[in-house]
Amino acid sequence: MDCNHYSFSWLAVTNGTDLVTLLQFPFMQRAIAGAVLMGLLGGLLGSFVTLRELSFFSHAVGHAALVGVALGVLLQLNPTVMLLPFTLVFGLVVLYLIDQTDLASDSILSIVLSGALAIGVLLTSLLPGYRGNLMGVLFGDVLAINVTDLILTLLVLIGSSIFLLSTLRQQILLTLNPDVAQVQGIPVQLYRYAFVVLLSLAVAVAIKAVGVLLVNAFLVIPASTAKLLNHQFAHFLATSVILGAVSSIAGMIISGLFNFASGPSIVLFQFLLFLVVFTWVNAVSTFSKRMR
């Protein structure tokens, strides 16, 4: 944390020359690289998350990560090491529960989200002197990204890209209609669970940087913006990935210029971009309707 306070004081710069100086610091380079990797990963997975109505799912997995972090500290393990298997198992169990009951999936997700949050907060309160870090888990710190985090994020990105792009048509069909996909011999259940594994891992590797509360923005906002702009799946997927990366770079610059926290700056940029595109698309469609 000391290191971060130091870096935050360096962020109190507002002119371009200082921004360039700032970019020469290794922690800043790691932060930008990490943010871009997470933007790419969020855009890629997010395009399927939004279409498969899994956005609430990743939100719940993110909150469960709080329990993972608290458990890690309590058992005196590295929280990051604890986080990966914890979110992974949590994601799989929740998907299994959704498959096994007749309850609506948003109800199940609300239940496990609330439960995880309650357990996480209570566990955190058992840790003397740790409570200050609750904010860190909730909102993350992009500037605290280390080389291990970068490698983990890169691995999840490579794994996700190989899995989704090599089976792209099957993934699209599965998203459109699981029954038809199954008739065409697509291993529907295997692919669904594999996707949830990747999604849970992506959430886990992003939490340190952007926190429990904002991690979902990376999955939902760029993909939703891309959805407004595209009528073809291939273009939609590419736009979503590009917007994810662009938002991360722009957000980091904003955070440097205005001395804002990095995670919220990225999400703010994603949000503003969405608003602009939303307004633009609606204006164009209203205009073309009037012209007819």
Binding site: K227, F233, A234
Partner: peptide, 8 residues
């Protein structure tokens, strides 16, 4: 609202 063209 699925972003997919007829040909795709």
């Amino acid at each position: 609202s699925f972003p997919i063209s007829v040909a795709e």
